[in-house]
């Protein structure tokens, strides 16, 4: 069985990418299961989707813990523990990163010996990454080595039907280009084993203790604990204040920041909390003095 995980940010089309690959497998005669993993997350937050494909009916369900192939649409997610990109990576797991950097750089950075490939990110700005789904699905299709380009083509058309001919055509070009680019690596991804009962570890079950009611209730006995959640990780564009141009108005940027991520410091200047700024860019749009600009996170 092939077990494949797509990682990206909400809004980057990971669900569609997983569906294109799923459909391509299916058109190729495989049994398929694909699903996005939804949660309370929003646009920009790390999300993932997965595809299982096998020659027999698929009985496994849920999150893929030991992937044969991991695809990352946004390279800023790779080192981020919360994104779980590297979770369950085995020596034979192929890692495909959509990145402007070389595989060598990544191999060194992550200190992993396993197969690591990159699909060069086209545009530097966030927009290029937004629509990387079709290209990544195309690359994945070639990496597994069992999907023909015509199956890929039909899968793209099937999954994007309704988006209009131009969009379908553009995505198809991207998917097929990525498929061609991965030709030297065709078949690099191999099917994972089914688990063997004999090799099963015993689960480390515990006897759950009875705790006191106030600890055992789903109640938070503390204030403003949400600051522990680093929503800055959602950001692909970073607002940057050009302080000489800031006229310390009535702190429009701070007032209109929905996330309380711009505070006013002792010197009466606004300061952006990049740990939590989600990159909505309302401050950029609203700054009366045009003192805030948006910079791609990769260049910040």
């Amino acid at each position: 069985m092939y077990r494949i995980r797509f990682h990206g940010r909400g809004g980057q089309g990971m669900k569609t990418a997983s569906r294109i690959l799923g459909s391509a497998f299916f058109l190729q005669g495989y049994e398929v299961q694909d699903a996005p993993r939804y949660g309370a997350e929003r646009r920009g937050a790390p999300i993932f989707a997965y595809v299982r494909a096998a020659r027999q009916a698929i009985q496994e369900r849920g999150i893929i813990l030991e992937p044969d192939l991991v695809i990352v649409a946004d390279d800023s997610l790779v080192p981020m523990p919360a994104a779980g990109v590297l979770q369950g990576i085995m020596p034979r797991t192929v890692l495909l990163i959509h990145s402007g950097e070389t595989p060598e750089t990544w191999r060194h950075r992550l200190n992993i010996a396993g197969p690591l490939l990159t699909l060069p990110a086209e545009a530097a700005a966030g927009d290029g990454q937004r629509f990387a789904g079709a290209a990544l699905a195309g690359a994945a299709a070639r990496l597994v080595g069992v999907i023909t380009s015509s199956a890929l083509e039909r899968a793209v058309q099937l999954e994007l039907a309704g988006l209009g001919r131009e969009i379908v055509s553009a995505n198809l070009d991207q998917a097929l280009a990525a498929y061609e680019r991965m030709a030297p690596e065709a078949g690099r991804v191999s099917e994972g084993e089914v688990f063997a009962a004999a090799a099963c570890r015993r689960p480390d079950w515990v006897e759950l203790p009875l705790d006191e009611a106030d600890a055992a209730a789903a109640a938070i006995h503390a204030g403003a604990t949400s600051v522990e959640v680093r929503t800055g990780l959602w950001r692909t564009l970073r607002p940057v204040i050009d302080y000489p141009r800031c006229n310390r108005c009535w702190w429009v940027c701070s007032e209109f920041c929905p996330d309380s991520a711009i505070r006013v410091n002792a010197g009466q200047y606004p300061e952006i909390d990049y740990d939590h700024c989600k990159g909505c860019l309302i401050c950029v749009a609203q700054c009366p003095a045009h003192a805030i600009s948006a910079v791609p996170e990769a260049q910040a």
Binding site: P209, D211, E212, A215, A219, I220, H221, A222, T225
Partner: peptide, 15 residues
């Protein structure tokens, strides 16, 4: 998670 939810008031409440 409980440590976060209860700040530093967890002593003795769980085993």
């Amino acid at each position: 998670l409980q440590t976060v939810a209860h700040a530093e008031r967890m002593e003795g409440k769980t085993t």
